[in-house]
Amino acid sequence: MDIDSFWELIGECRRQAQTPDERLAWLRDALSRRSSAEVVQFQVCLDEVTHRAFTWDLWAAADRILGGWCSDDGFCSFGLWMVGLGREAFTHAVADPDSLAVTPEIQALVSRPRDVWHDDWPGWESLDYVAMEAYGILTGVDDECGEGFYEALDAVQGDGGDNAGPLGERWDVRCENEAARRLPRLSAIFPLPL
């Protein structure tokens, strides 16, 4: 599986299923009909694209959308959710995080209290485990920790290497002037609580 095949699979998933759980089930099923090598490559591609989103500007966008505070885990989940938006929206967001403001998924959240977002919450942590689950189905090994999968992934990726922090310049999204300059649309539609 190459990066184009990866994005085609994500796009087909968006067309075939609506909720995050339905999309996961669809992806798990689709991956479990491929070879174990393709399933591992799916995870390699997922790791590559989420690494591209590991920037301070996108973290600030997530902070803004989530009310001014986004944890490390929350940001990882947000990056996975962005993958679920599809290739075009993801690519635009990496280039210009403020472009998230015009995505239908973000527009659906505007003017709604965060405590009622539920399935619309901009996070999709479980996407990071779907390849491991499909690998387990393929190999017939019921391994909750995914040791066999992660060994196969390490054989392809190595140790992952770069553990550097987010790319770019860190800035505080709670500084309204800076947020209005860097994320004007998101700042307008997601005012921070006082």
Rank of each mutant, 00 (worst) to 15 (best):
A108G: 00
I10Q: 08
T50I: 08
V102R: 01
D2A: 08
F90G: 01
V173L: 12
P97Q: 06
V141R: 10
F78C: 10
V102K: 00
W171F: 06
A108D: 00
F6V: 09
R15C: 09
Q18M: 07
W171T: 07
A25N: 12
P97Y: 04
L58W: 08
A62H: 09
Q18T: 11
L46D: 03
F149N: 05
V110N: 00
L58T: 05
D4E: 11
A164H: 11
A180G: 05
M82R: 03
D159P: 03
S187A: 15
E169D: 09
A164S: 15
R34K: 14
F6A: 02
L194A: 15
D29T: 15
G160H: 10
A95K: 10
L194Y: 07
E151H: 12
R14A: 08
A53Q: 08
Y135V: 01
N163V: 10
F42L: 01
E144S: 02
D162I: 13
P113K: 12
H118D: 14
P193R: 13
D159Q: 09
D120F: 06
T103Y: 02
L24N: 09
C175F: 01
V83W: 10
S111R: 07
F78H: 07
T103D: 04
V156H: 07
G148K: 04
P166Y: 12
Q107I: 07
A37F: 04
D172W: 08
T91S: 09
L85I: 06
D154V: 08
A93L: 02
E8N: 15
D159K: 04
N163Y: 14
H118Q: 14
L9T: 15
Y135S: 06
R33N: 04
L85R: 11
R170V: 08
H51C: 09
F75P: 01
P97D: 09
T91E: 07
S99W: 03
E169I: 11
G86R: 10
W171Y: 02
W59P: 03
S71H: 01
D47C: 06
G146E: 05
V40P: 06
E176L: 15
